[in-house]
């Protein structure tokens, strides 16, 4: 079974969300998702400053034979993207919860994080 840190929040579409407790959140894809996708070869990230709706497709991760959309977990504005991924998309494979983070955003409504899945809920989802 893949790694699902208990302190993070999750979406059904396999994003993880960490609350940075300074008004911003960090978004990435789960260990389970990177396993399904295989070796990633390219990541297309949103521009900082872009406003996103919840569940809006805002980034793309590519393997050799697949391209998967990444969805904004909540509504808000992109504040920073992980530029290291431009040259090293493999960071998502090697360290999905650390150096492989995708982008940070400021949630429009801090309470919206409440609607995300817990680690246990996500584990149950991923099991299916």
């Amino acid at each position: 079974m893949s790694n699902i840190p208990s302190e993070l929040k999750y979406t059904k579409s396999h994003e993880w969300v960490s609350d940075n407790e300074n008004g911003t959140i960090t978004v990435g894809i789960t260990d389970h998702a990177q396993e399904l996708l295989g070796d990633l070869v390219f990541v297309e990230l949103p521009e900082a400053g872009k406003a996103l709706d919840a569940e809006e497709a805002c980034a793309v991760v590519e393997s050799v034979k697949a391209a998967s959309d990444i969805y904004a977990p909540v509504a808000g504005e992109v504040t920073e993207v992980n530029e290291a991924l431009e040259d090293q998309p493999e960071l998502i494979n090697s360290d999905p919860y650390g150096e492989g983070w995708l982008f940070k955003m400021k949630a429009a409504d801090p309470d919206s994080l409440e609607s995300l899945l817990s680690a246990d809920d996500y584990a149950a989802e991923a099991e299916e």
């Binding site: 050799v64 034979k65 391209a67």
Partner: peptide, 13 residues
């Protein structure tokens, strides 16, 4: 190479 740009993988995108 770079096939993930193309329609047979990315479809509507």
């Amino acid at each position: 190479t770079l096939q993930a740009r193309e329609q047979h993988i990315r479809r509507s995108r």
